[in-house]
């Protein structure tokens, strides 16, 4: 009878109990070609509006530069996308399905958003390859991490990234002993190890020599296409060398958007930059 049936449905081998289904966010859905939607965001600290009705859309595979004077809300915007700061109102979606505001930093990182900080933050006590190994995409739960061992595929992946970030010779050096520019690269390398779909890169050219800067620009442009890249930068030459689309932030909202040339001739932008 139905008892037997319900027993059977209860014991079905091809299904697990609901509570055993891991709580994974839905897959990244890019059907509309837009990877990041920020809509009507507002954040205020102690009455100061750091983000004021911000709307920003990033397309899949795009390389976008964001510029703006100090206090324009660039870092705060990144904090919101990566889950570090929760906005007072507004919405932030990653693709069509993933609501970033419901997730914490690790969940957002695993969902496919990597972030490089303004100040290079690498694990200075660890070797370069350890830094990359720790950042590698994979099972990030506690027990699997305890028993994890590098297999050859993973080893190859690390070598590949080492090559991309020009640190092949330094693989066993302690990260703390790298130069400032090398640390920046290592951090970008760590982002790449995560296999992100969207990279948020905060001031990648700071403290770099011209040669290093060129290499960084080359690296970022090569990443675009397969990844979406958002670069926040102050150095206009650097921005010009990589960007085809630039967004100007001012007082927490978007002031102008367009190609570098358009931006440079925009009257409002000139006022903001030169008027102060």
């Amino acid at each position: 009878m139905s008892v037997l049936e319900s027993m059977r449905s209860f014991m079905r081998r091809d299904q697990v109990f609901d509570f055993l289904i891991p709580d994974v966010p839905p897959n990244l859905d890019l059907t509309h070609g837009v990877i990041l939607y920020l809509e009507n965001l507002n954040v205020s600290f102690d009455g100061f509006k750091a983000i004021n009705d911000l709307n920003l859309y990033i397309d899949d595979g795009e390389l976008r530069c964001i510029i703006g004077p100090n206090g324009a809300g660039k870092t705060t915007m990144m904090d919101i996308i990566t889950g570090k700061t929760k906005p007072d109102s507004g919405s932030a979606w990653f693709g069509q399905e993933i609501n970033l505001l419901d997730m914490d930093e690790p969940e957002i990182a695993t969902a496919g958003i990597g972030r490089k900080f303004q100040k290079p933050t690498v694990f200075e006590q660890h070797r370069v390859i350890d830094n990359l190994e720790l950042a590698m995409a994979g099972d990030k739960r506690v027990w699997p991490t305890l028993t994890a061992h590098l297999n050859s595929a993973e080893q190859d992946r690390i070598n590949e990234i080492l090559k991309i970030i020009n640190l092949e010779e330094h693989f066993s050096r302690r990260a703390g002993s790298l130069s400032h520019g090398q640390k920046q690269w290592l951090e970008i390398g760590m982002l790449l190890m995560q296999n992100p779909k969207l990279l948020l890169v905060d001031e990648p050219a700071a403290g770099m020599t011209h040669q290093e800067m060129d290499q960084t620009a080359e690296l970022l442009t090569s990443l675009a296409g397969t990844h979406s890249v958002v670069v926040v930068e102050h150095d206009m030459d650097f921005v010009r060398s990589i960007a085809n689309k630039v967004t100007v932030l001012h007082q927490g909202s978007v002031l102008a958007e367009g190609t570098m040339d358009e931006i440079q001739n925009n009257q409002q932008v000139i006022e903001v930059y030169l008027g102060e």
Partner: peptide, 14 residues
């Protein structure tokens, strides 16, 4: 409320 009753507000430093 990790910051206590009267938190000092500010931008979360990166």
């Amino acid at each position: 409320r990790p910051q206590g009753l009267f938190p000092q507000k500010g931008r979360a430093g990166a």
